[in-house]
Design a protein around this nucleic acid. Sequence first.
DNA 1: AGACTTCCATATTAATCGATCCAGAAATTA
DNA 2: TAATTTCTGGATCGATTAATATGGAAGTCT
Lengths: 218, 218
Amino acid sequence: MARTGRPREFDRDKAIDAATALFWAQGYEPTSLTQLKASMGHISPASFYAAFGSKEALFREVVQHYLATYGQVMAPLWDESLPPREAIERTLRGSARMQAARTHPTGCLVVSGASNCSPENEPVQALLAAERQRTRAGIKACVERAIARNELKASPSTDILPNILATFFHGMTCEARDGMTVDTLDAAITSLLTLWDINTVKPLKNRQKNTENTGVRL
Amino acid sequence: MARTGRPREFDRDKAIDAATALFWAQGYEPTSLTQLKASMGHISPASFYAAFGSKEALFREVVQHYLATYGQVMAPLWDESLPPREAIERTLRGSARMQAARTHPTGCLVVSGASNCSPENEPVQALLAAERQRTRAGIKACVERAIARNELKASPSTDILPNILATFFHGMTCEARDGMTVDTLDAAITSLLTLWDINTVKPLKNRQKNTENTGVRL
DNA sequence: AGACTTCCATATTAATCGATCCAGAAATTA
DNA sequence: TAATTTCTGGATCGATTAATATGGAAGTCT
């Protein structure tokens, strides 16, 4: 698209960054347009609406930006080239490190970005709820893949495992916001994952060598 | 105190109930005085301020009311007459049932009541944060009591156990709000508590009978 | 009955909310 | 240079925010 006319003076990407930090720290509703404009370099209302459309449209853009950057700590969930347990572990540890980092607001924007909402902003709440549901589906898929690959036993205990992981995962936001450190979260994850390990299919001794006997049904 | 003068026409307790439901569902900031007054029977601003002082004062009263009623599901944490594991389990299950119930807003008011807050309402946020810290201390005390009573091993794994339990506990709010049922939460709790059980001090066979031999050091 | 207290309803405060609109300046392209 | 485009700053929109002020009715006490 050939751009003509006077170019905008403020950096749109930096403006999105600033808006992300604000929405992340305070949530959708408490963040006012005045704050947003100020954080973008005191731009005018006209510039704001010309660039972003509305507060809600900006928020949706911020969420997309968040998912494409910080949110990528959860990418392992969808990477089928990874062993399922490693996918889960990488996601949990990466998310812990990200959420507890001091270089940006703590916690997860998707979890806490619109947790206090009046009815008129229900669409905003639904946007994040859908994203959380996507996360749950990803965790569940990993567990089911592990069962299919005969790495986890199929049992009531593994049926519920995705829910435990999701609950813990979403709880990290509260803990990180209340000051829990990366190291503590990391230790908790290590311990939590024993819930995975006690449900693993016990390998026979020298089981690795059996991989040579493809076609042989044990 | 002898009350004189015209008695108020609205029921103050029912007004607190109504305010609790509103704050619980929407959070502190998004709940407006207009909504609050309407839910109390369309009382006047003057009546509101005479009865409650301010929005923040009302919220503090609501939190106290919440803790004294719904929040009592966590009372087992402080009941030293209970075996520590049972105290934890009762708290988790009671909280799950409470948070997922459909007779009131889902989730926990202490966790989500002021999660989206502008800087000027930081005191409100701090109020709930302190309450969450109290919960963590209660969980930790239970685990430490279990170690002291020789029911849990002292180990890095049990050191981190309180953090896992707290993270899961706080995560239940997100899950309940997103529709997770009591049954699912209950099953997750059952499975989560195996993290406790694998750290228990293994009882000798016929250990119960040994309780008769008090004074005998094994 | 009379004094007193606290209620209620109605108006109104200043401030802020998200969102528009306009006029003029500035930078691009032809 | 001229035409075009989109920026900027400032004024402003109606609605809503939390909080006060006023004036009279209503109920409780001595």
